[in-house]
């Protein structure tokens, strides 16, 4: 990795939900701040900025990561998928998103984007999880509104209907 100077703003280009997106970032700018303020992709949220709550979860090269624990310059040239990229262009909801609505798995919706990104990654790797496994995966997220019951129902619903969450369209 090239040496970056501290004060300078460096050009950063990512493949955001399948499309190129560019902006500038000081080396210390967090990926989540870059997405929200430079690119205007405000779907990813900040709940703690210390890696505990999961609200900022996005997928970098397919893997769910906390975008508050990563610098924007580290994402340069990589694929970043966020909640805005779920579903297709006609803005239909994925099976997972619909299950969230049906099962009332969200209230304020602030934790939801991060939760959806984690589940998408998880279900690709583990399409038939048990309820315990689902709860363990969800335990990487803090939701203050729902008590998690709806989320668990929604994921179980998706799993039992075989309709695993579609992966982001940038595949």
């Amino acid at each position: 990795m090239p040496r970056l100077s501290r004060e300078a703003r460096h050009p950063v280009t990512i493949i955001l939900n399948g499309k190129r997106a560019s902006g500038y970032a000081e080396p210390r700018l967090l990926l989540v701040d870059f997405l929200r303020r430079e690119i205007g992709a405000t779907g990813s949220h900040v709940g703690c900025e210390h890696g505990v709550c999961g609200a900022c979860t996005v997928r970098v090269d397919g893997k769910a990561v906390r975008s508050c624990l990563m610098y924007a310059v580290q994402a340069d040239g990589r694929r970043v998928d966020t909640v805005e990229g779920l579903g297709d262009d006609s803005s239909d909801l994925t099976a997972l998103q619909s299950a969230f609505r049906r099962e009332h798995a969200l209230q304020c919706g602030y934790c939801t984007p991060g939760v959806l990104m984690s589940i998408s990654d998880f279900l690709e790797r583990n399409p038939k999880p048990t309820e315990t496994e689902i709860r363990e995966m969800l335990s990487g997220h803090i939701c203050r509104c729902t008590g998690y019951a709806g989320m668990v129902r929604a994921v179980l619903d998706v799993v039992s209907n075989g309709g695993a969450a579609e992966s982001p369209k940038s595949e």
């Binding site: 405000t42 779907g43 909640v83 579903g87 803005s91 969200l106």
Partner: peptide, 19 residues
């Protein structure tokens, strides 16, 4: 009745104060 608020929130198109 399913919530009318949900579609936007699920697509990351909520409009929170910092957005």
């Amino acid at each position: 009745v399913e919530r009318l608020e949900d579609a936007a929130l699920l697509m990351g198109r909520g409009r929170y104060a910092d957005d």
